[in-house]
Computed example of a mutant assay.
Amino acid sequence: MLTSNGYVLDQSRLAELTVVPDRERADRQALRERLWRDGYLYLTGLLDPEVVLGFRRYYFELTGAVTDRASYRKVLFDQIVPGPEYAAFCAQPRLRGWFEWFLGGEPFLHKRKIIRQTAPGENGIGTATQAHYDLVYLREGSDQVLSAWIPLGDCPVSRGGLTYLEGSHHRVLEEEAAGRLKHPAASMTADLPGLADEYDARWLVTDYAAGDVVIHTAHTIHAALDNVSTGIRLSTDIRYQRSADAVDSRWQNHWHDQDGL
């Protein structure tokens, strides 16, 4: 049984996230067509697992000794988020180089980069990321921003990884074009089963491994599952775009949970 913010997902509305096959990994046109069709690219093993696990160890070396929320927030927002280790991880050659190749030009990495940690058993509305698409938070720049979701360590389904609403970007694009937006500048809902029924679509899930990366468009609806495992779920989500395109200036400061975005 899978849940998100306490809502039980309907088994008939679940399917497996599709991995980009090896034959397409070096075919930029095929990847672009797949991204347009599916709204995401699931790239297994794009990063070196040891680099990913090394950053995970660094993170817990700094946060593992804190005993209260205030101390944790200070370490996270004063040391880790603005630190050189995080900057290097997000701009590592395997990641930045992939975007440079895929975009066909100089890539631009948004400074606002997010780290999410969820412990086993944490629950309540808002614990898991609610359903949304990224453009509602990035309206002052290009709508061609691409997000990279990176599990910082193995993340089986039970640990609360990201889930995507199948084909949702096509409907979102239509609603954007027609001006029929219902939920601007906010998450859509915590009720993933209800949203799946509304869209007549399935939530796509999988067991992620260290080194995997999912690239998704700014129009693709996604959310997170509850962590019902025995381990901590740690991930980061960052955003690249073409450097020549319009940039949302609000995303050019380091992430903070009080930044209003």
Rank of each mutant, 00 (worst) to 15 (best):
M1H: 06
M1N: 07
L2N: 06
T3A: 13
T3H: 05
T3W: 04
S4E: 08
S4M: 02
L9A: 00
S12K: 12
R13F: 11
T18L: 15
V19T: 08
V19L: 06
V20I: 10
P21L: 06
E24D: 14
A26D: 15
D27G: 08
A30N: 07
R32G: 08
R32S: 05
E33L: 09
E33Y: 00
W36S: 10
R37D: 15
D38K: 03
D38S: 11
D38C: 02
Y40G: 00
Y40I: 04
L41R: 03
L43D: 04
L47C: 06
E50N: 05
E50T: 02
V51T: 04
V52R: 03
T63G: 10
T63C: 14
G64Y: 11
A65T: 13
A65I: 00
V66M: 05
V66E: 07
R69G: 09
A70K: 11
A70P: 01
S71N: 09
R73S: 14
K74T: 15
V75C: 00
Q79N: 13
Q79L: 15
V81K: 00
P84Y: 02
P84N: 00
E85C: 01
A87L: 08
A87P: 00
F89P: 11
F89M: 09
C90R: 01
Q92A: 15
P93V: 12
R94W: 05
R94E: 15
L95W: 05
L95F: 08
G97H: 04
G97I: 09
W98T: 01
E100Q: 15
F102L: 15
F102T: 11
G105D: 01
P107M: 09
F108Y: 14
L109R: 00
H110M: 09
R112G: 05
I114G: 00
T118I: 12
A119G: 07
A119T: 10
G121I: 03
E122C: 06
E122W: 11
N123Y: 08
G124V: 13
G124N: 05
T127Y: 12
T129D: 08
T129F: 07
Q130F: 01
D134S: 13
L135W: 10
V136C: 14
Y137P: 07
S142V: 06
V145P: 02
W149A: 02
P151K: 08
L152F: 02
L152K: 03
S158W: 03
G161W: 08
T163W: 06
L165H: 03
L165Y: 01
E166R: 11
G167R: 05
L173M: 15
E175H: 08
G179E: 06
G179P: 06
H183D: 13
A185G: 12
S187Q: 04
T189G: 13
A190Q: 04
L192A: 14
L195W: 00
L195S: 07
L195C: 04
A196K: 01
Y199K: 01
A201S: 15
W203C: 13
D207R: 02
A209G: 10
A209T: 13
A210I: 09
G211R: 14
I215L: 13
H216F: 15
A218E: 03
H222R: 02
H222T: 06
L225G: 05
S235H: 00
T236L: 05
T236V: 14
D237K: 02
R239V: 11
Q241V: 05
S243F: 10
A246T: 09
V247R: 12
D248E: 10
S249N: 04
R250E: 14
N253D: 12
H254Y: 15
H256P: 04
H256E: 09
Q258F: 07
Q258Y: 05
G260T: 03
G260N: 01
